[in-house]
Computed example of a mutant assay.
Amino acid sequence: MEDDVPSETQSQEEDESQDDLWDEEDDDRAEFDQSVQSYILQCRRKRRRILSIAATMMVVPSNKVVQHMGRHGYTSQNVMAICDFDMRYTFVVAGWPGSVHDMRVFKDAIDKFGDKFPHPPEGKYYLIDSGYPNRPGYLAPYKGIKYHLPEFRQGVMPRGKKELFNYSHSSLRNVIERSFGVLKMKWRILLDLPSYPMQKQSHIIIACMAMHNFIRDSFLRDVDFDLVDHDENYVPFAEGSSSDGNVSNVHHGDEDVNMNEFRDWIADGLFSRS
C-alpha cells in the first residue's frame, strides 16, 4: 500500500492557505497590540496617583546571548513599567535586551511615545531607583547610601538625613517591587518564557500586565494580591530592580541641581521630625 503524496497543486493550495493564515495572525497581532495599549491607557486615565517607575528582568531564552545577557548572568528582557499606589500598571515597555541600560529604555520610550508617555504633572514626582538621575518630575534616592528595605531591617535602622530619606523613599517605592512580584507569582510563564520570537514574548509580558490590572480592577478576592495587601513588607520573588547594577553609569552631571536641592529639603524635613 502506497503512502498518499500530495500533488503539486495540493502543495500550492496548502502554501496559499498557510500564507492566508499568517496574514490573519499578523492582523490578530495588530489588533492585540492596539487593544492592550488601549486598555493600559484606560487604566492610566482612571487613576492619576503617580507613584513609581522601575525596570525588571523577565527570563527569556535567546540565540542572541550577548545582547540579552543581563547583570544576573542569564538571558533576559528589560521591561520598564510604571505603577500607581494600587499596584496597577499605567505604562509598560517590553522587548529590550537585558544588557541595555535602563536609561536608554527610558529615553527611547519618551522619544517613541511622545505625548502618550505619562509625564508627571507639575508638582508631582515619580519615585525612581538609583539607576536613574534625579531630574524634574523624577525623584531619585541618594546614591552610595544604604537604600533597600532589607538592608535596614536586617541591620541598623537609618542614621542621618540621607539614610532616613532613602528609607522613606524605598518604603514608598516598594510598591513597584511588590507589583512585579505579584505579576511573576501569578503568571509563572514569566519566570521562564518559552522560545517564542521576541515580539511574541513581549506580547505575553504585556498581556499578563493587562490581566494583572483587570484582576485588580475587579475588586474580587485574589490570593496573590491578598498576600501583599495584608503585608506591605512582603515582596514575592524579590530580586531588586534591574537598575541597581547601573548606578555606576549614572553621573552627577546628569542630575538637576534644583531637584537635588529639593531632595535635600525633603530630607531635612524628615530628619527634623525624627
Rank of each mutant, 00 (worst) to 15 (best):
Pro6Trp: 05
Arg47Asn: 15
Lys161Arg: 15
His203Asp: 15
Gln77Glu: 14
Lys161Asp: 12
Val182Met: 03
Val175Met: 09
His230Gly: 10
Gln154Met: 00
Ala109Gly: 09
Ala54Arg: 07
Tyr142Ile: 13
Val247Gln: 15
Val93Asn: 00
Pro150Ser: 07
Lys143Val: 06
Asp229Ser: 10
Arg71Trp: 15
Ile128Pro: 01
His203Trp: 11
Ala81His: 04
Ser171Thr: 15
Leu149Phe: 08
Glu163Lys: 04
Val60His: 09
Ile189His: 11
Leu41Val: 02
Phe219Ile: 09
His101Met: 03
Pro121Met: 12
Tyr126Ala: 06
Ile53Trp: 12
Pro150Trp: 09
Pro158Ser: 02
Met69Val: 07
Ile53Ala: 08
Glu24Phe: 10
Asp229Phe: 07
Phe237Met: 03
Phe237Gln: 02
Asp33Tyr: 11
Arg44Ala: 07
Ile215Gln: 10
Ala30Val: 06
Cys43Phe: 02
Glu31Thr: 11
Asn134Ile: 02
Arg178Asp: 00
Gly253Asp: 14
Ser242Gln: 07
Pro6Gln: 02
Tyr39Val: 00
Val235Arg: 05
Asp217Cys: 04
Asp26Val: 07
Ile40Tyr: 14
Gly70Thr: 03
Met1Lys: 09
Met57Cys: 13
Arg29Thr: 06
Trp265Asp: 10
Gly73Pro: 06
Lys64Arg: 14
Arg135Leu: 15
Phe117Val: 02
Pro136Arg: 12
Phe262Gln: 06
Asp108Glu: 09
Tyr39Ala: 06
Tyr89Val: 12
Leu51Gln: 06
Arg216Cys: 10
Ser170Gln: 02
Arg188Ala: 10
Glu13Ile: 03
Lys107Pro: 01
Glu239Thr: 13
Val5Trp: 04
Glu163Arg: 03
Gly269Pro: 00
Ile204His: 06
Ser35Glu: 15
Ser202Thr: 04
Tyr125Trp: 15
Gln12Cys: 10
Leu190Lys: 03
Asp23Gly: 00
Asp222Gln: 08
Tyr125Met: 11
Asp217Thr: 02
Gln12Phe: 12
Gln34Asp: 13
Arg153Phe: 14
Tyr196Trp: 15
His68Ile: 01
Phe219Trp: 10
Pro197Arg: 08
Leu220Asn: 13
Ser7Met: 06
Val223Gly: 00
Ser7Trp: 09
Asp20Ile: 01
Asp108Lys: 01
Arg173Thr: 05
Ser62Ala: 10
Ala207Ser: 14
Val60Ser: 10
Tyr74Val: 09
Val223Cys: 05
Gly240Pro: 11
Ala267Gln: 14
Gln37Ile: 08
Phe152Ser: 01
Pro197Ile: 00
Gly137Leu: 00
Ser171Val: 11
Tyr132His: 04
Ser272Trp: 01
Arg159Val: 05
Asp129Phe: 08
Leu183Arg: 04
Met58Trp: 10
Tyr74Ile: 03
His252Cys: 05
Arg44Asn: 07
Arg48Met: 09
Arg71Val: 13
Val247Ile: 15
Lys107His: 14
Trp96Asp: 07
Met57Ile: 05
Gln199Ser: 11
Gln37Leu: 12
Asp264Trp: 04
Gln37Met: 13
Val60Lys: 12
Asp33Leu: 08
Asp231Ser: 05
Met157Tyr: 09
Gly123Lys: 10
Phe32Ser: 00
Asp28Gln: 06
Arg263Ser: 05
Glu177Pro: 05
Leu191Gln: 14
